[in-house]
């Protein structure tokens, strides 16, 4: 048997997570943890669920999962503390001669 298929094309949950969409865009969201107040507004807005506030000892700030960030910029646009910047990925930083 080369493959197994589920009866009626029924799928198991959350299989999309194996698809890494982090390479889609030209930009990534970058969090300035000094400015971040961990208000979680970006969490609620991210269409891809890939920015989350996490605790690091006494510190708490938003962390972007670059496996999935498509670089849409929604989080940066809703951050009242200007703690998120969209930055061009290294790959696209091309010098024009």
């Amino acid at each position: 048997m080369e493959i197994k298929i589920n009866i009626g094309a029924i799928s198991e949950p959350l299989q999309s997570e194996k698809l890494k969409t982090g390479d889609w865009g030209t930009e990534w969201a970058v969090v300035d943890k000094e400015k971040c107040t961990a208000c979680r507004v970006c969490e609620q807005f991210c269409p891809d669920g890939c920015i989350e506030v996490k605790k690091f000892g006494d510190e708490e700030y938003a962390v972007v999962d670059y496996n999935y960030c498509k670089g849409c910029g929604v989080c940066a646009s809703v951050c009242r503390f200007e703690a998120i910047k969209m930055e061009l990925k290294e790959l696209f930083k091309i010098e024009v001669c």
Binding site: P13, L14, Q15, S16, E17, K18, L19, K20, T21, W24, G25, Q44, F45, C46, P47, D48, G49, C50, D65, N67, Y68, K70, G71, C72, G73, V74
Partner: peptide, 22 residues
């Protein structure tokens, strides 16, 4: 537990998925 997984195919900045997640 996530209710709507990452890695879905919506366009970057899709409004639908913001609504669905919430």
């Amino acid at each position: 537990m996530r209710f709507f997984g990452r890695g879905h195919g919506a366009c970057p900045g899709c409004g639908l998925t913001i609504a669905v997640r919430n």
